[in-house]
């Protein structure tokens, strides 16, 4: 099966129909089974310290949570309800004003019940990440509710 139409649908639903993603203006850069990449354009609203002009770590976390959830759905290739169990971020360097945030996420282990995901956030260059993160998601096949 060619996964592209599913991923196209996922991308559209994600960026247009998830209220908070839409409010932030998170953009889809790429999506496939192996890896997804998102981009968050800079806004002054993202600052967590107006004096030093650094981006709030919560903005980075929201981008990471979004990217990890999407990476799980992209990997499963079938919409099913998922729930974040935990999320851990390491902030390697401050995220600075005036630059967008990029986030890539990929699943490194998929079991019938749990998916493990890692992600990386950068601004100017992927090899200089501002944050690295790992997360675990629970797959719940019992609910009939829509994923996104």
């Amino acid at each position: 099966m060619n996964p592209a139409p599913y991923h196209e649908l996922l991308a559209e639903r994600f960026t247009r129909h998830v209220p908070h993603i839409h409010e932030l203006g998170i953009e889809m850069v790429s999506i496939d089974v192996e890896r997804i990449e998102l981009r968050l354009p800079y806004r002054e609203d993202w600052l967590g310290d107006v004096v030093h002009r650094l981006i709030h770590p919560g903005v980075t976390s929201t981008l990471i949570d979004s990217a990890c959830g999407l990476a799980v759905l992209a990997r499963l290739q079938n919409p099913e309800p998922i729930a974040t169990l935990d999320l851990r971020m390491d902030y390697l360097r401050p995220a600075v004003a005036d630059l967008p945030l990029h986030c890539e996420a990929s699943c490194y282990r998929v079991t019938p019940h749990i998916v493990f995901v890692r992600s990386s956030v950068w601004q100017s260059a992927p090899e200089k990440p501002v944050a690295l993160s790992t997360a675990a998601f629970m797959r719940s096949t019992t609910s009939k509710k829509r994923v996104i």
Binding site: P19, S61, T84, R146
Partner: peptide
Amino acid sequence: PSLVGNRSIPALHGGVTAAFMEN
């Protein structure tokens, strides 16, 4: 309403919860 991450439940975006707690 714009803090929602899943409209069918509806549930807060998990990132919002994380960001709110970090803040």
